[in-house]
């Protein structure tokens, strides 16, 4: 990854000033170096390795139980190697009548995909408007966006449920995927993030020259802004997908007890009731986790970058 050139051109808000400045030559003496220039010693690697093991162990343990028989749970010391029962356990999960596990995976995929695509589009056009277009009230409206970032969303959850009951459709929107999708279609964080990125990534002259050529605002967005903000779209898209996939409380309230759960709600159903078998529960949990592990594997770099940039901005 050519970070130096990337940040130079894009100069996102989180760009590390230490990186942008020409790199100092690392001095030969240990004492004078900043921590980030000091090579890590054995202990650092050892402790980081330990941190890594603690991070991955619960996920690994989930897989061990998911692939084992009931007896595995009673083993002391705990079973360490996975067994060969994964398909059998999974088959049981999928065939449980009142859990709708297979449907729930499809539902989660639909919800997360629609929400992600929509957030990317609406937040990038709004971010573009706030970063590069002049209009009355833009400053105060942007302040409002930032303020909405700080409001805990749980506060309005009771009223949101009542509101959903009054929306058009049989019995309102509660119990349908619409109730989970529509409130997630935009995000204040997304608008804020895209604005910050576009401010640095798209030179004003480029937009001016587009104007001179007679391009409309949407044309400028499409051919100048969009290509320049791809990295930010990747970051925002990944974070949004993960957040949407993992959302639990609101989906439980509005979809709980229906035939259309998301996978998080289905996991909850799987762990409730009188015949809870943990090899089943964790087989289901593992299946719901795998898509995100794959995402981390593919886009981990972008996710790390998004989180780290977000920190410096705020």
């Amino acid at each position: 990854m050519s970070t130096t050139t990337d940040t130079r051109v894009a100069n996102p808000p989180g760009a590390d000033p230490g990186e942008a400045a020409p790199r100092r030559k690392v001095k030969p003496s240990m004492s004078g170096r900043a921590p980030q220039d000091t090579p890590a010693g054995k202990w650092t690697y050892l402790l980081l390795g330990l941190t890594f093991l603690l991070s991955i162990y619960p996920i690994y343990w989930m897989f061990v139980i998911a692939t084992s028989t009931d007896a595995a749970l009673a083993e002391i010391p705990p079973k360490f190697l996975p067994g060969g029962e994964f398909m059998k356990n999974l088959d049981e999960v999928f065939s449980l009548q009142d859990v709708y596990f297979a449907e729930s995976l499809v539902n989660s995929l639909i919800v997360s995909t629609v929400v992600t695509v929509s957030v990317l589009f609406f937040c990038s056009v709004a971010g573009f408007a706030f970063a590069k277009l002049r209009f009355r009230g833009s400053r105060i409206l942007m302040v409002m966006v930032v303020l909405t970032l700080t409001v805990p969303n749980q506060l309005g959850i009771v009223a949101l449920y009542i509101l959903m009951g009054y929306l058009p459709g049989e019995g309102g929107w509660n119990g349908s995927l619409l109730a989970v999708i529509v409130p997630g279609l935009v995000s204040a964080f997304g608008v804020f993030y895209m604005r910050q990125f576009i401010l640095g990534a798209v030179p004003d002259e480029l937009i001016e020259s587009g104007r001179v050529d007679g391009a409309t605002t949407m044309r400028i967005y499409w051919s100048i802004v969009l290509p320049a903000v791809r990295p930010a779209l990747a970051v925002l898209g990944l974070l949004t997908f993960v957040g949407s996939w993992n959302d639990f409380q609101w989906p439980l309230i509005t979809l709980g007890g229906t035939d259309y759960p998301t996978s998080m709600v289905a996991l909850f159903d799987l762990a409730s009731g009188n015949y809870v078998l943990y090899r089943r529960v964790l087989a289901g949990a593992f299946v719901a986790t795998v898509p995100l592990i794959i995402l981390l594997f593919v886009g981990g770099r972008q996710i790390v970058r998004g989180i780290m940039e977000g920190a410096v901005k705020s």
């Binding site: 996939w245 639990f248 996978s263 762990a271 593992f286 996710i303």
Partner: peptide, 9 residues
């Protein structure tokens, strides 16, 4: 990145 429901279980 692990779903909270999964890790809690």
């Amino acid at each position: 990145i692990t779903p909270l429901t999964a890790s809690t279980l």
